[in-house]
Protein backbone atom coordinates (compact mmCIF):
# COMPACT_ATOMS: atom_id res chain seq x y z
CA UNK A 1 0.00 0.00 0.00
CA UNK A 2 2.83 2.36 0.88
CA UNK A 3 6.41 1.92 -0.29
CA UNK A 4 9.43 4.12 0.39
CA UNK A 5 12.70 3.60 -1.46
CA UNK A 6 15.82 5.36 -0.18
CA UNK A 7 13.94 8.50 0.78
CA UNK A 8 16.13 11.39 1.94
CA UNK A 9 15.04 14.85 3.02
CA UNK A 10 17.12 17.77 4.21
CA UNK A 11 16.09 21.27 5.22
CA UNK A 12 17.54 24.67 4.58
CA UNK A 13 20.87 25.81 3.28
CA UNK A 14 22.73 23.87 5.95
CA UNK A 15 21.15 20.68 4.63
CA UNK A 16 20.02 19.62 8.06
CA UNK A 17 19.24 15.94 7.75
CA UNK A 18 15.64 15.15 8.61
CA UNK A 19 15.16 11.80 6.90
CA UNK A 20 18.22 9.79 5.99
CA UNK A 21 17.91 7.16 3.24
CA UNK A 22 14.83 5.41 4.56
CA UNK A 23 13.13 2.44 2.91
CA UNK A 24 10.18 0.44 4.13
CA UNK A 25 6.74 -0.64 3.04
CA UNK A 26 3.33 -0.83 4.65
CA UNK A 27 0.88 -3.60 3.75
CA UNK A 28 -2.75 -3.09 2.97
CA UNK A 29 -4.98 -3.23 6.02
CA UNK A 30 -2.30 -3.02 8.68
CA UNK A 31 -1.61 -0.53 11.44
CA UNK A 32 1.96 0.59 10.95
CA UNK A 33 3.61 2.59 13.72
CA UNK A 34 6.45 5.07 13.40
CA UNK A 35 7.91 5.19 16.88
CA UNK A 36 10.45 7.79 17.86
CA UNK A 37 11.08 10.98 19.82
CA UNK A 38 10.52 14.53 18.58
CA UNK A 39 12.91 15.45 15.82
CA UNK A 40 13.33 11.84 14.67
CA UNK A 41 11.86 12.70 11.26
CA UNK A 42 8.36 11.30 11.73
CA UNK A 43 6.51 14.38 10.53
CA UNK A 44 8.79 14.78 7.52
CA UNK A 45 8.01 11.22 6.43
CA UNK A 46 4.30 11.89 6.83
CA UNK A 47 4.48 15.08 4.85
CA UNK A 48 6.34 13.43 2.01
CA UNK A 49 3.84 10.59 1.85
CA UNK A 50 0.92 13.02 1.91
CA UNK A 51 2.59 14.91 -0.99
CA UNK A 52 3.15 18.05 1.06
CA UNK A 53 6.93 17.78 0.79
CA UNK A 54 9.07 16.61 -2.06
CA UNK A 55 11.90 14.26 -1.08
CA UNK A 56 15.46 15.29 -2.00
CA UNK A 57 16.05 11.84 -3.39
CA UNK A 58 14.42 8.45 -3.48
CA UNK A 59 10.93 7.45 -4.51
CA UNK A 60 7.73 6.74 -2.64
CA UNK A 61 4.49 5.20 -3.75
CA UNK A 62 1.14 5.48 -1.96
CA UNK A 63 -1.80 3.41 -3.13
CA UNK A 64 -0.06 2.83 -6.45
CA UNK A 65 0.68 6.49 -7.09
CA UNK A 66 4.01 8.29 -7.06
CA UNK A 67 4.13 10.97 -4.35
CA UNK A 68 5.71 13.54 -6.64
CA UNK A 69 4.18 12.92 -10.04
CA UNK A 70 0.72 11.70 -9.10
CA UNK A 71 0.15 13.93 -6.10
CA UNK A 72 -3.37 14.78 -7.21
CA UNK A 73 -4.52 11.16 -7.21
CA UNK A 74 -2.95 10.59 -3.82
CA UNK A 75 -4.66 13.62 -2.37
CA UNK A 76 -7.97 12.09 -3.35
CA UNK A 77 -7.46 8.80 -1.60
CA UNK A 78 -5.83 9.57 1.71
CA UNK A 79 -6.88 10.97 5.05
CA UNK A 80 -4.36 13.02 6.99
CA UNK A 81 -4.33 14.25 10.55
CA UNK A 82 -1.36 16.57 11.08
CA UNK A 83 0.68 16.77 14.27
CA UNK A 84 -1.48 19.35 15.92
CA UNK A 85 -5.22 18.94 15.85
CA UNK A 86 -5.76 21.16 12.87
CA UNK A 87 -9.27 22.40 13.33
CA UNK A 88 -10.87 25.77 12.93
CA UNK A 89 -11.03 26.96 16.52
CA UNK A 90 -13.83 29.43 15.86
CA UNK A 91 -16.10 26.93 14.12
CA UNK A 92 -18.28 24.43 15.98
CA UNK A 93 -17.82 20.67 15.87
CA UNK A 94 -20.59 20.35 13.33
CA UNK A 95 -19.30 23.19 11.17
CA UNK A 96 -15.78 21.79 11.12
CA UNK A 97 -17.03 18.39 10.06
CA UNK A 98 -19.35 19.77 7.39
CA UNK A 99 -16.63 21.98 6.05
CA UNK A 100 -14.11 19.20 5.65
CA UNK A 101 -16.79 17.00 4.09
CA UNK A 102 -17.52 19.61 1.40
CA UNK A 103 -13.87 20.33 0.78
CA UNK A 104 -13.43 16.65 0.03
CA UNK A 105 -16.50 16.79 -2.16
CA UNK A 106 -18.72 14.58 -0.05
CA UNK A 107 -21.34 14.92 2.66
CA UNK A 108 -21.40 13.85 6.28
CA UNK A 109 -24.42 11.64 5.61
CA UNK A 110 -22.71 9.74 2.81
CA UNK A 111 -19.94 8.35 4.99
CA UNK A 112 -21.57 8.62 8.37
CA UNK A 113 -21.16 4.89 9.00
CA UNK A 114 -17.39 5.37 9.06
CA UNK A 115 -17.38 7.96 11.79
CA UNK A 116 -20.53 7.02 13.64
CA UNK A 117 -18.88 5.27 16.59
CA UNK A 118 -16.51 8.18 17.13
CA UNK A 119 -18.90 10.98 16.33
CA UNK A 120 -21.63 9.94 18.76
CA UNK A 121 -19.18 10.52 21.59
CA UNK A 122 -18.79 14.19 20.71
CA UNK A 123 -22.22 14.76 19.18
CA UNK A 124 -23.75 16.14 22.41
CA UNK A 125 -21.33 19.07 22.05
CA UNK A 126 -21.80 19.58 18.33
CA UNK A 127 -22.62 23.26 18.73
CA UNK A 128 -19.53 23.96 20.78
CA UNK A 129 -16.61 25.68 19.11
CA UNK A 130 -13.52 23.57 18.54
CA UNK A 131 -11.36 26.00 20.50
CA UNK A 132 -13.38 25.23 23.62
CA UNK A 133 -12.96 21.45 23.47
CA UNK A 134 -10.69 19.29 25.59
CA UNK A 135 -7.69 17.58 24.02
CA UNK A 136 -9.50 14.26 23.84
CA UNK A 137 -12.51 15.74 22.08
CA UNK A 138 -10.40 17.70 19.63
CA UNK A 139 -8.58 14.49 18.83
CA UNK A 140 -11.83 12.67 18.11
CA UNK A 141 -13.15 15.51 15.96
CA UNK A 142 -9.89 15.69 14.01
CA UNK A 143 -10.12 11.96 13.36
CA UNK A 144 -13.70 12.31 12.13
CA UNK A 145 -12.60 15.10 9.80
CA UNK A 146 -9.78 12.95 8.42
CA UNK A 147 -12.16 10.04 7.86
CA UNK A 148 -15.13 11.82 6.40
CA UNK A 149 -14.20 11.31 2.75
CA UNK A 150 -13.67 7.57 3.16
CA UNK A 151 -9.94 7.45 2.52
CA UNK A 152 -8.16 4.20 1.81
CA UNK A 153 -5.05 5.14 3.74
CA UNK A 154 -5.05 7.10 6.97
CA UNK A 155 -1.99 9.09 8.04
CA UNK A 156 -2.06 10.05 11.70
CA UNK A 157 0.87 12.13 12.87
CA UNK A 158 1.16 11.94 16.66
CA UNK A 159 -2.58 11.71 17.29
CA UNK A 160 -2.14 10.96 21.00
CA UNK A 161 0.44 13.55 22.01
CA UNK A 162 -0.69 15.71 24.90
CA UNK A 163 -3.81 13.66 25.46
CA UNK A 164 -4.48 11.84 28.72
CA UNK A 165 -4.34 8.08 29.20
CA UNK A 166 -8.09 7.56 29.02
CA UNK A 167 -8.43 9.33 25.69
CA UNK A 168 -5.36 7.54 24.37
CA UNK A 169 -6.85 4.14 25.19
CA UNK A 170 -10.14 5.08 23.54
CA UNK A 171 -8.31 6.35 20.52
CA UNK A 172 -6.48 3.10 19.97
CA UNK A 173 -9.74 1.21 20.27
CA UNK A 174 -11.11 3.37 17.48
CA UNK A 175 -8.10 2.62 15.31
CA UNK A 176 -8.63 -1.10 15.75
CA UNK A 177 -12.23 -0.71 14.58
CA UNK A 178 -11.13 1.27 11.55
CA UNK A 179 -8.65 -1.44 10.72
CA UNK A 180 -11.50 -3.94 10.74
CA UNK A 181 -13.21 -1.80 8.11
CA UNK A 182 -10.23 -2.36 5.87
CA UNK A 183 -8.33 0.89 6.25
CA UNK A 184 -4.56 1.00 6.09
CA UNK A 185 -3.31 3.14 8.95
CA UNK A 186 0.09 4.70 9.40
CA UNK A 187 0.49 6.30 12.80
CA UNK A 188 3.35 7.94 14.66
CA UNK A 189 3.80 8.31 18.38
CA UNK A 190 6.44 9.17 20.92
CA UNK A 191 4.84 6.80 23.45
CA UNK A 192 6.59 3.46 23.38
CA UNK A 193 3.74 1.65 25.11
CA UNK A 194 1.52 2.36 22.11
CA UNK A 195 3.90 0.51 19.84
CA UNK A 196 2.63 -2.84 21.09
CA UNK A 197 -0.78 -1.96 19.64
CA UNK A 198 0.54 -1.74 16.07
CA UNK A 199 0.85 -4.65 13.65
CA UNK A 200 4.33 -3.59 12.68
CA UNK A 201 6.54 -0.80 13.87
CA UNK A 202 9.56 1.14 12.71
CA UNK A 203 11.72 2.54 15.48
CA UNK A 204 13.24 5.77 14.26
CA UNK A 205 15.80 8.16 15.63
CA UNK A 206 17.57 11.13 13.99
CA UNK A 207 16.12 10.36 10.57
CA UNK A 208 17.30 6.79 10.55
CA UNK A 209 15.37 3.59 11.07
CA UNK A 210 16.75 1.54 13.92
CA UNK A 211 14.54 -1.47 13.32
CA UNK A 212 11.39 -2.56 11.52
CA UNK A 213 9.47 -5.51 12.85
CA UNK A 214 6.34 -6.74 14.52
CA UNK A 215 6.31 -5.78 18.20
CA UNK A 216 6.53 -9.45 19.21
CA UNK A 217 9.53 -10.22 17.04
CA UNK A 218 11.25 -7.04 18.09
CA UNK A 219 10.92 -8.00 21.71
CA UNK A 220 11.95 -11.59 20.99
CA UNK A 221 15.09 -10.31 19.34
CA UNK A 222 16.23 -8.44 22.43
CA UNK A 223 18.94 -11.05 22.86
CA UNK A 224 19.93 -10.44 26.46
CA UNK A 225 18.54 -11.41 29.80
CA UNK A 226 16.70 -8.51 31.34
CA UNK A 227 16.20 -8.26 35.08
CA UNK A 228 14.02 -6.10 37.23
CA UNK A 229 15.43 -4.86 40.49
CA UNK A 230 13.08 -3.90 43.31
CA UNK A 231 13.22 -3.29 47.03
CA UNK A 232 15.13 -0.33 48.37
CA UNK A 233 15.66 3.31 47.58
CA UNK A 234 15.51 3.47 43.80
CA UNK A 235 17.80 6.41 43.38
CA UNK A 236 20.54 4.94 45.54
CA UNK A 237 20.13 1.54 43.89
CA UNK A 238 20.38 3.11 40.45
CA UNK A 239 23.56 4.99 41.30
CA UNK A 240 25.08 1.93 42.90
CA UNK A 241 24.29 -0.39 40.01
CA UNK A 242 25.59 2.09 37.46
CA UNK A 243 28.92 2.16 39.25
CA UNK A 244 28.95 -1.63 39.50
CA UNK A 245 31.46 -2.90 36.95
CA UNK A 246 29.53 -5.99 35.68
CA UNK A 247 26.48 -3.83 34.87
CA UNK A 248 25.84 -3.52 31.13
CA UNK A 249 22.98 -1.05 31.50
CA UNK A 250 20.63 0.08 34.24
CA UNK A 251 17.59 2.30 33.86
CA UNK A 252 14.63 3.28 35.98
CA UNK A 253 11.45 1.70 34.67
CA UNK A 254 8.35 2.61 36.59
CA UNK A 255 8.56 1.14 40.06
CA UNK A 256 11.62 -0.99 39.34
CA UNK A 257 15.01 -0.81 37.68
CA UNK A 258 15.72 -2.63 34.45
CA UNK A 259 19.14 -4.19 34.53
CA UNK A 260 21.27 -6.12 32.05
CA UNK A 261 24.52 -7.68 33.14
CA UNK A 262 27.74 -8.40 31.29
CA UNK A 263 28.42 -11.98 30.32
CA UNK A 264 29.54 -14.16 33.19
CA UNK A 265 27.64 -12.29 35.86
CA UNK A 266 24.53 -13.98 37.19
CA UNK A 267 21.71 -12.42 39.15
CA UNK A 268 22.97 -14.26 42.23
CA UNK A 269 26.31 -12.51 42.01
CA UNK A 270 24.59 -9.16 41.57
CA UNK A 271 22.23 -9.82 44.49
CA UNK A 272 25.15 -10.74 46.69
CA UNK A 273 26.91 -7.53 45.73
CA UNK A 274 23.88 -5.44 46.62
CA UNK A 275 23.40 -7.22 49.92
CA UNK A 276 26.99 -6.62 50.73
CA UNK A 277 26.37 -2.90 50.10
CA UNK A 278 23.53 -2.91 52.62
CA UNK A 279 20.50 -3.56 50.40
CA UNK A 280 19.04 -6.55 52.17
CA UNK A 281 15.57 -6.65 50.69
CA UNK A 282 16.56 -6.39 47.05
CA UNK A 283 14.90 -8.81 44.63
CA UNK A 284 16.34 -9.38 41.16
CA UNK A 285 14.02 -11.18 38.76
CA UNK A 286 14.10 -12.06 35.08
CA UNK A 287 11.54 -10.23 32.99
CA UNK A 288 10.40 -9.91 29.38
CA UNK A 289 11.63 -6.74 27.76
CA UNK A 290 9.23 -4.16 26.34
CA UNK A 291 9.49 -1.99 23.24
CA UNK A 292 11.06 0.74 25.29
CA UNK A 293 13.83 -1.61 26.44
CA UNK A 294 14.47 -2.48 22.81
CA UNK A 295 14.53 1.17 21.81
CA UNK A 296 17.01 2.02 24.54
CA UNK A 297 19.22 -0.85 23.52
CA UNK A 298 19.10 0.15 19.86
CA UNK A 299 19.86 3.76 20.78
CA UNK A 300 22.90 2.68 22.77
CA UNK A 301 24.27 0.39 20.10
CA UNK A 302 23.92 3.12 17.45
Amino acid sequence: MITLNNITKTYGKEKTMAVDDISFSVNKGEIFGLIGPDGAGKSSIFRMLTTLLVPDSGTAVVNGFDVVKDYKQIRNSIGYMPGRFSLYQDLTIEENLNFFATVFNTTVEENYHLIKDIYIQIEPFKNRRAGKLSGGMKQKLALCCALIHKPEVLFLDEPTTGVDVVSRKEFWDMLKNLKKMGLTIMVSTPYMDEAALCDRIALIQLGKILSINTPEKLVAGYGETLYTVTGGNMYQLLNLLRSYAPTESCFAFGDSLHLTLKKGTSKQIATAFLEQQGFNKVIIQETTPGIEDCFIKLLKSN
Binding site: G36, T161, P190, I296
Partner: peptide, 21 residues
Amino acid sequence: TGGVDPVTRRQFWDLIYYAAN
Protein backbone atom coordinates in the same frame (compact mmCIF):
# COMPACT_ATOMS: atom_id res chain seq x y z
CA THR B 1 9.61 15.34 29.29
CA GLY B 2 7.09 15.56 26.47
CA GLY B 3 8.35 14.12 23.20
CA VAL B 4 11.91 13.13 24.13
CA ASP B 5 13.50 9.74 23.59
CA PRO B 6 13.48 7.14 26.38
CA VAL B 7 17.16 7.52 27.23
CA THR B 8 17.01 11.31 27.49
CA ARG B 9 13.82 11.02 29.50
CA ARG B 10 15.64 8.90 32.06
CA GLN B 11 18.61 11.21 32.12
CA PHE B 12 16.16 13.97 32.86
CA TRP B 13 14.80 12.02 35.79
CA ASP B 14 18.36 11.57 37.06
CA LEU B 15 18.49 15.35 37.32
CA ILE B 16 15.19 15.39 39.19
CA TYR B 17 16.42 12.78 41.66
CA TYR B 18 19.64 14.71 42.12
CA ALA B 19 17.76 17.91 42.87
CA ALA B 20 15.36 16.17 45.27
CA ASN B 21 18.27 14.54 47.07
